[in-house]
Design a protein around this nucleic acid. Structure first.
Lengths: 209, 209, 209, 209
DNA sequence: TATGAATGAGGATTCATTCAT
DNA sequence: CATGAATGAATCCTCATTCAT
């Protein structure tokens, strides 16, 4: 085993630092408030070097989004994992609730959702690559949701809905509510929205309602 | 109150021109693509004069949004008007469908919705006035929807739902779908979304389903 | 005798208002802080009308200076008036002290001196007319001082100095001190400067010192 | 600390160029005539880079003043240096004359004094830092003058004046005369003013006059 | 890798001034 | 006299991006 690389002095901060700092700044001051120079200052890196990593600022934005999604993606996959041994995640509904809990913003100005808002705002001008990567992220959420719904249906936990259509509808609902929360529409906090979503599931997914 | 259009020699373009042009540009190239100088060129007005009307670019954005909303607002009020004599709008459900038709974007890159996306993206940094005016617009849509739902419920056309809660939920759904359409998520066009919304109403609002 | 012009409604404010307001603003926020529109607002007059009076902003500046000087000029002439009948101003020295009291700024940010500072700063670019009017003002102060000195000398109150040379020197001293006071050099208030000037007179003008 | 001049291919002009050019322009066209773009053109540097050095235009003004002062300051310190071996600077009076020669403007529109006039004009609105740096410059001149006067007094070359008070008075006189020369009051050239200052010293500082 | 000086293309905003009414 | 809409030139400053080192 090679000796651990002794990068004692001013060890170059790992990329994660950069992305985390970028997201923090965006959440705080919006994407316009994020400057390469400023970010460089925050992470102790020259603006030149920042551009050496991310070839462009748009790339940085996208990478930040992907990085943030990856963290959620890991959690998501974990909670959706089949309840093999008795322990772990339980019913489809329980896992669906967890999925929703992960989907929705933590509250007003949630960094992850602020990022999405910015991305959407810019997505008109985005090139194909950017649009594709953006779609890939959304696709992952979608497919996992479809699978979960299909499982619930096949188990008889859920009504026999069209999993794909229903997933699209549920995600639209969640997106809409998420915006309301993130933007800070009065009277629309996370708890209210979680309750609304649960009620929606009860009415439309639970059999024999 | 705008000055009465006095068709003078050099025919000052009325304000509407400006707002229409602003919205067109924003829809095309995003808010960042809208420059005071460029807009001035489009409407035959100096950039200086543009800033003389709208004290600031943010104000222009907001005014454009309000102007766009006013036009929709008029249509909305018309179609919600009580069906007095046999003619005109019919059942609550018919009017609700019309409301939804008005709410949803015409398609990918719908100007009005592009504007909203921009406004949301910026709303984190907005001042109180901006936020209030933004909320006022949303409030109008909300109240009209609540009234319509309440009427349908009281008439027995709809199930006895909590009008306010249901309105919030429906609007979240519509907002989410609208974004999907506007941003251009593949396989999410206006027709699909209209159908989804209709299906949602059938399942949750129509009695005895 | 014609009837007094009944300009009852919104009687146009007299020019003095304008000049006074201009000086107040300049003193407060500097010449850069004075805008035609802002001044118009202060005096209830459109910026267009302001330019109808003063053909240009530079002209306004000059007129403001002259107006301010006129007021001082009147006071100056009064206090320098020969002590004909026993009453009135007394010895040349007393009148000289009064002259100096009038010359020096009231304190930090004295409006009149702030104006002079601005005028000097701009005088490099000034046209001939402006320079001439500026010189006229300074000339009036100078001549009155020369006359006063000559009188004092001829009366034997003062040493036999060269009145013109001495006046130039005294005015340089006063100008220098005035700047120090106006600009706000610490430890240089009006009293200190008055004392310094008096001491200077004692040492250089009083006979047999 | 400026980067060591590394005489590269496109030979980045050293900072001094910039400051010299700035002063030249200010002297010619006043501070309003100095634009970052224009200055950039003069020194072969983009306006962007100019703002990269000097964070703001005000900072550039101040730096230019300090740079100009530094050059005079060096000369001043040299000529005030104690007359060690018989050679070099001579009597206190000789050095005082040299000090005055350095203090006074070269003539009408002297760049250094034009700068001071601008600084004074703006000093009303200056922030604390600017004011402090401005005061520092004036303080250096003052202290050196006080020291020189004290030395002359202690040696018996000068009358026993209060060095600090006398210095303030002399500087006021010099400031006043300098303005007259810089602004271009007719009949007030450098020679006249030098003569006036000398006469003032003869009368008030030379013992037994 | 890493730096940071250098660029240059804007961009919003301000304001004196004009002029039709 | 008086207005104020309209102009348009001019300005400072920001910032992503490049590149020599």
């Amino acid at each position: 085993m090679p000796p651990a690389p002794r990068r004692t002095h001013h060890a170059a901060p790992p990329r994660d630092d950069v992305l985390a700092a970028a997201m923090a700044t965006i959440a705080e001051r919006g994407l316009d408030g994020l400057t390469m120079a400023g970010l460089g200052r925050d992470v102790g890196m020259s603006s030149g070097h920042l551009l050496y990593y991310f070839r462009t600022k748009d790339e940085l934005l996208l990478r930040t989004l992907e990085w943030s999604e990856n963290r959620l993606g890991a959690e998501r996959r974990a909670l959706l994992a089949e309840p093999r041994s008795g322990s772990g995640a339980g019913s489809a509904r329980e896992r669906l609730d967890a999925y929703i809990g992960l989907y929705l913003p933590a509250g007003h100005r949630d960094p992850h959702w602020t990022l999405w808002l910015e991305v959407w705002g810019r997505s008109q001008n985005a090139d194909d690559d950017a649009r594709a990567r953006q779609a890939a992220i959304e696709g992952a959420w979608h497919r996992d949701l479809v699978a979960l719904l299909a499982e619930g249906v096949s188990r008889g936990e859920f009504r026999p809905v069209d999993a794909d259509r229903y997933a699209a509808r549920l995600r639209a609902l969640l997106d809409g509510f998420s915006i309301h929360v993130t933007v800070g529409i009065p009277g629309t906090g996370r708890e209210q929205v979680v309750a609304q979503a649960a009620e929606f599931l009860d009415e439309t997914l639970t059999p024999g309602s």
